[in-house]
Design a protein around this nucleic acid. Sequence first.
DNA 1: TATTTATTTCGAAAACAATCGAATTAAATA
DNA 2: TATTTAATTCGATTGTTTTCGAAATAAATA
Lengths: 193, 193
Amino acid sequence: MKIKSQSEPLLSFFKALSDANRLKLVGLLAQKEASVEELAAVLEISASTVSHHLSILSDIGLVSARVDGYYNIYRLETDELERMAQSLLAQETLPEVVEGLDPKAYDRKILKDYLAPDGAIAKIPTNHRKLEVILGYIAEKFEFNRTYTEKEVNAIIGALNPDISGLRRDLISAKYLGREKDGSAYWRVKGEG
Amino acid sequence: MKIKSQSEPLLSFFKALSDANRLKLVGLLAQKEASVEELAAVLEISASTVSHHLSILSDIGLVSARVDGYYNIYRLETDELERMAQSLLAQETLPEVVEGLDPKAYDRKILKDYLAPDGAIAKIPTNHRKLEVILGYIAEKFEFNRTYTEKEVNAIIGALNPDISGLRRDLISAKYLGREKDGSAYWRVKGEG
DNA sequence: TATTTATTTCGAAAACAATCGAATTAAATA
DNA sequence: TATTTAATTCGATTGTTTTCGAAATAAATA
């Protein structure tokens, strides 16, 4: 099942107003209500096209129609327009737009690029952002709430990549591992377990 | 020369935000700045497509880029977004949208439909709105600031359509012509000259 | 200096949207 | 009831937009 974004109304609103003729329709109806025929004459497009545009505006509640004799008289729902415009400014609107997206997708892509199929680190990235992701991956091989000897640390790192001392230094300077001043013990500091 | 609407910025704004992926980009950048690669991974679309979308957002000043090493780091121009959203609500925004449109286009179309090539009234509309337009057309054949005898009135109307008494009555009841109680004089009341 | 890397630009394919005129529907008048 | 009228729906066409992968660009590293 496809995860559907929470922001459909917002997108529909922008789509509805992202056409020059529809924007003009809203502008005209803001002045006074009007029939399809009249709008078509002023916009110089066919009545069927106006009808199509009005149905899009009507779908999101921005205009409504009233029958009067032969005519369908359309009017702008001013309150609705104001409500929608206001909600653009609301704090909670933008966060909803990104619901359903996975912020870890980039980290996963980096791991995929730098790890061998067996989980070893095939190549060490020079780039800072990417190195950070790889260091986080190494850190996960360490448990919280215990200490490791340097020999144990080297064994864990060495199973992943031959550049043991370089990676050990990086892990400490990036604060993934803590270390006794005399080098007698190491322990895991941060990461997500 | 094509008359250009005054509302280009408004239309560009809506167009820019009328795509689901661009809306998500804005949502992501609202949380934190990010590189093209990172955005592409999270949205699960190609980097070139992200680049294309960012250039559209950047054209209207909604995002900006900063170079950092290999990366172009994009950030949301929060102030600009707020400014644009605010201007949607501004009084003067909607009227600008309809600038350059001719509100008399509908009247002209009605005249075209009901007048013969020589200017005579080929057919009298039953519809109220349309009849009004035709009456306005007849009224223009009368001068302001003088009176007409019934004979003169009949001659002017008769040159346009044989239903003289019907049209004369309509002109008076729609207040295009004034009339002495005893019917001895008629004069033009409203219209645009 | 040659190579690697992220981004942008380009060109083509596919998806989408606007538009028109004709056919249909619904409502008013003759 | 048949006709006229305005609006909507339909089908086809045209134009625009999104998207991708490949090629070009620009910037950092080896």
